[in-house]
Design a protein around this nucleic acid. Structure first.
Length: 498
RNA sequence: GGCGGUAUCGUCUAGGGGUCAGGACACGUGGUUCUCAGCCACGGGACCGGGGUUCGAAUCCCCGUACCGCUACCA
């Protein structure tokens, strides 16, 4: 089995296309097949190498590796259409010689006028066949006169083209409603419908899995396979990914490209898992599965027929899951750019990373995305008793005698305390409890405020050890200075004036 | 306009001639001797409409409707 993903390098990799790539990859990997990456860059005006590079990068980031492609080559290369011009030229000549194709001298203006007229008359909008019956001599003459014609494929008349779509079943088209498509443009560039056929045939692709938007192109392509003497592959058309308003997912809906989701702090395994769930189900009421398990279970037959709405809430849910599963050190590394973005200088040095990783537990359990980590962990780097007391809510919390007593007792208890770990913190809290008689929220809220400067935050026995550990880090650790628990408690008590 | 595709909770889906139509996200309520989150429990919420076939249709067939795609010298 040989499958391929064939993007046009115009812009960045869209999640809809990423899903198409994923389904291809899943099928290939689950069946020990070959996954080919081909770049369809025949649209010179829109294609760029930067775009191609970004797509390769995004695919790799998702974990979708390919066995043959423009960067690594392969036995059926080259894998960039602009490098395959000789092939298209040769097959176009073959088609011309066999009478399956003909030169078309119609101007764009003429074609446009034909379309307008057809639309006005309520007739099918398709090429009227103006140049279809030009004799070879006529064509030669105009060629000799310096005209630059396009080449059209001669679609046979009065025929049914039927193919069995692997996800939808039999699909039937009447050739009479298909206009003769351009296969080579006047500038010599092959048109999509022609290039895909030549490439898929020569690359020996066995299963063409692509978006539903290509389903109407399939009969033309099958006809081309026949005219060229190739056997058509199996086809599978995937439904499209829509926005919440059920129109094709686009910029208006927010993030649409893989790189945007990466920039927001989604993990690749979460995006992959979520994408697999649009239009397919692993079965057994299971949804969160690693990519290789997804591949093991994947089958085209089980792919749904209807378009799916991209739901970022559910993506976020998957992301939370994988955030919890992920290795803290990896999360720390991935978080560094987000700290920089948030204005916290966080050099990715070893000791800093190690500290960040140890603090990650208090963030990864309660965050949707990595870009929320800096805010979540801000209480480590940024403590000010004065500023905390400016907060009306915090003043309110500390307005009772009991709360003030807790802060005072805490400062006293911590005055001679060593660095706090979970147990020592618990012990300190018990002492404060014994000294003040406060318990539950009345005990822990003031403690939280005194140690973090915030009324909210992660569990204290997660936060407290992290604060103290950070405070002991050497100056060159890459971690911004952190004030330890003892200093915080004392500063707080002083500010409170008790 | 022509042609093609699609239709189960708000969303992603499972199922498929007889089911209490199942799960997940989101939402609501309650629980969890620190908040948010998490976790647990509970709850509301769906088979597009109309015909037909059948003892019985959400499921099969037809029609309609809606949405999406193609109808490019874009891919």
């Amino acid at each position: 089995m040989r499958v391929r993903f064939a993007p046009s390098p115009t812009g960045s990799l869209h999640v809809g296309n990423a899903r198409t790539a994923l389904f291809n990859w899943l099928l290939a990997r689950g069946r020990h097949g070959t996954f080919i990456l081909r770049i369809e860059d025949t649209d010179a005006a829109r294609s760029t190498r930067e775009s191609e590079a970004s797509m390769l990068r995004d695919l790799r980031w998702l974990g979708l590796d390919w066995d043959e492609g423009p960067d690594i080559g392969g036995p059926r290369g080259p894998y960039r259409q602009t490098e395959r011009m000789h092939l298209y030229r040769s097959y176009a000549q073959e088609l011309l010689a066999a009478g399956h194709a003909y030169y078309c001298f119609c101007s764009s203006a003429q074609l446009e006028a034909d379309r307008q007229e057809a639309a006005a008359l309520g007739r099918p909008i398709q090429y009227p066949g103006t140049c279809r019956r030009l004799t070879r001599e006529q064509a030669e003459q105009r060629l000799a006169a310096g005209e630059h014609p396009a080449i059209r494929f001669r679609v046979p008349e009065h025929r049914d083209v039927v193919f069995t779509d692997e996800v939808r079943g039999d699909v039937r088209f009447q050739t009479d409603v298909i206009g003769d498509p351009i296969i080579v443009r006047a500038d010599g560039m092959p048109a999509y419908n022609f290039a895909v056929v030549v490439d898929d045939a020569l690359m020996e692709v066995t299963h063409v899995i692509r978006g539903e938007d290509h389903i109407s192109n399939t009969p033309r392509q099958i006809l081309l396979y026949e005219a060229l003497g190739f056997t058509p592959p199996a086809f599978a058309h995937l439904s499209l990914v829509m926005g919440p308003d059920h129109t094709p997912l686009s910029k208006r809906h927010g993030a649409t490209s893989v790189s945007e989701f990466r920039a927001k702090g989604y993990l690749p395994e979460a995006l992959v898992n979520y994408l697999a769930l649009i239009g397919w189900s692993p079965g057994h009421d299971e949804e969160l599965l690693p990519i290789d398990e997804l591949a093991r279970r994947f089958s085209l037959r089980a792919v749904g027929h209807s378009a799916g709405v991209f739901d970022e809430e559910k993506l976020a849910w998957a992301n939370r899951h994988y955030l919890k599963m992920a290795d803290p050190l990896r999360l720390a590394q991935l978080s560094v750019p987000f700290f920089e973005q948030a204005g916290v200088a966080m050099a990715p040095q070893a000791s800093g990373l190690e500290f960040l990783a140890s603090a990650m537990a208090m963030a990864s359990a309660s965050v949707d995305r990595l870009n929320q980590v800096p805010a979540r962990l801000a209480l480590l780097f940024d403590f000010s008793a004065d500023r905390a007391l400016e907060d009306a809510h915090i003043r309110e919390e500390l307005s009772t005698a009991g709360a003030r007593a807790v802060v005072t007792a805490l400062a006293g208890t911590l005055a001679n305390a060593p660095r706090l770990d979970r147990e020592r913190f618990r012990a300190a809290a018990d002492q404060v409890k014994a000294a003040t008689g406060q318990k539950g929220k009345a005990l822990f809220h003031p403690i939280r405020i005194a140690l973090t400067g915030r009324a909210e935050g992660p569990e204290l026995d997660l936060a407290v050890p992290a604060i103290d550990r950070g405070a002991e880090l050497p100056r060159d650790s890459g971690v911004p200075p952190i004030v330890g628990c003892r200093e915080r408690a004392i500063a707080f008590a002083r500010c409170l004036g008790v």
